[in-house]
Nucleic acid binder design. Structure first.
Lengths: 148, 148
DNA sequence: TTTCCTGCAAAAGCTTTGCAAGTAC
DNA sequence: GTACTTGCAAAGCTTTTGCAGGAAA
């Protein structure tokens, strides 16, 4: 039985965020962090239930909700279907494929450049005109994959 | 009984988009176009059922779906709850209030400036690196209302 | 030991569908 | 007259909740 090198790190992470450390939570967090395609609750359920038999879909939802409250994950906005989850908490750009609905991360270097390039004076003008305080800007690139 | 000045325009619009013109569709489209707060299907149902008794929620969903297919409306991405609909088809920015979930339009002049200010070279670089063809960029300003 | 988590099942909320009757074209 | 739309009800999906037993701190 080989030791999992991530196990301790995850335990630390949970304890820093005041989350109890259970095998279900560890497994689910690993699956979520490893999946850059931003899985739905159901996708995670099927992935994880292979390793942890008896895991229930309700627990997946509860646990993901706990992660989001603890700012270890976030829900991504999507139209209609199942909610998609993302273990990356810092603001980053996404692509959304109009054909498949798949959501992927834009490489961070490029995404940060884009966010920093936004005109601050314009943002401040919008805040003033609309009586709205902007916490962050969410950018999504909508289109389709060109490669097969 | 005063004549509704919009009625003819809507009929034209429908015929140009090859949609049959029924009283339910006209009423629903007027309600959607008049509501800048981006209503849900249920909100529209309650608004419209006052004017058109017997209107069903299923028809609201079917009709909104028909509008979207005909590119007379679009669904807005939102996390989880009910789908929100928008009669504006051209690309524009939205604010989303973290407290109330309300979605509002950014004045078009400001929004267009923001969209035009995006660095094209960066967008093209992302397309190249990710094998992704960008159709449009969706920007959402997340925060909260400062006025009461 | 205390408090919180899990798992099952059942409920709740949102959206779609089947079909008979009605309406636009 | 034909093809599409409406309205009702019922089904389908996703997500949440109640509660008894179990595990972490």
């Amino acid at each position: 039985m080989q030791k999992d090198p991530d196990s301790g790190r995850i335990q630390d992470l949970f304890s820093r965020h005041k989350l109890r450390c259970t095998s279900q939570r560890k497994g689910l967090y690993k699956a979520l962090a490893a999946n850059t395609g931003h899985p739905t609750a159901e996708q995670l359920y099927y992935e994880v239930s292979g390793h942890i038999p008896g895991m229930s879909l309700a627990t997946v939802y509860n646990t993901l909700e706990a992660f989001c409250s603890a700012h270890l994950a976030q829900k991504l906005p999507g139209q209609g279907g199942s909610t998609r989850y993302d273990a990356c908490v810092h603001n980053h750009l996404h692509t959304r494929c109009e054909k498949s609905g798949a959501v992927h991360d834009v490489p961070d270097e490029l995404g940060q450049k884009m966010l920093k390039g936004l005109p601050r004076t314009l943002l401040r003008q919008i805040e003033k005109e609309m009586g709205f305080s902007i916490d962050y800007v969410r950018i999504e690139l909508v289109g389709q994959h060109t490669s097969g």
